[in-house]
């Protein structure tokens, strides 16, 4: 474990807690994309299949349970909670996210490190995570008025993978033959997708005005 990875995990945890806080306290999910939340639930479900078979540390297992629990409970809130589900803007959140799942699955079947069931699904989860934010970014562009909590959620979610990239550079430099091109490229693509959001987020933060994404 290194400081970059710990910072990444804490930033990721913070993003999830911000979202849960928003949904649980103000009982609203306005501006949040259910499609992105469903994609993230699939990402964690396919990434953490080894939670029962391999144990690395208490920390590792605990964080996996937190991410699984939070992502599925957010989906549950947005789909079934009587108050929250009414605040979900269904008409705006129209990204065909299933069109993201299939190509990622095909790509995982083609490009992976080992052709085993767990490894292919794990690789699928990496590819899917890279593009999972797209429905949310599209929704933000449509809804224009981004409330602070949603903006912070996307900002933290984008930041965590950035820390992971620093972690991979650190591990590449310190651990002999630590090379994982698939993980690195997927992580880089994921972070680059946030680039324009980060630009406008910093602009709004610097000029101290509401975050507005160009249509």
């Amino acid at each position: 474990m290194n400081i970059f990875r710990l910072a990444g995990d804490m930033t990721h945890l913070a993003s999830v807690l911000v979202l849960l806080l928003k949904i649980h306290t103000i009982k609203s999910c306005a501006g949040v994309s259910l499609k992105t939340q469903e994609l993230y639930a699939i990402v964690f479900a396919t990434r953490y299949l080894d939670i029962f078979t391999s144990f690395y540390s208490i920390y590792n297992t605990l964080m996996k349970l937190i991410f699984l629990g939070s992502s599925f409970s957010i989906v549950w809130y947005m789909r079934y909670h009587k108050t929250v589900r009414r605040t979900y803007d269904r008409e705006q959140d129209t990204f065909r996210h299933w069109f993201l799942v299939l190509p990622c699955l095909l790509l995982a079947l083609l490009i992976h490190e080992k052709f085993t069931f767990l490894e292919v699904l794990w690789t699928f989860s990496l590819y899917l995570e890279a593009v999972a934010i797209l429905p949310q970014l599209v929704l933000l562009q449509r809804t224009r008025n981004i409330d602070n909590l949603t903006g912070q959620y996307v900002f933290l979610l984008g930041g965590y993978r950035g820390f992971y990239i620093l972690n991979w550079i650190y591990r590449y430099l310190t651990e002999p033959h630590f090379v994982h091109w698939i993980t690195w490229i997927a992580g880089l693509v994921q972070t680059l997708l946030y680039a324009d959001f980060f630009y406008y987020y910093f602009q709004s933060w610097k000029n101290n005005k509401k975050l507005q994404l160009p249509a």
Partner: peptide, 10 residues
């Protein structure tokens, strides 16, 4: 060997 791959990462 376990530390070697990224499976120890979240």
């Amino acid at each position: 060997q376990q530390e070697e791959n990224t499976k120890d990462e979240l």
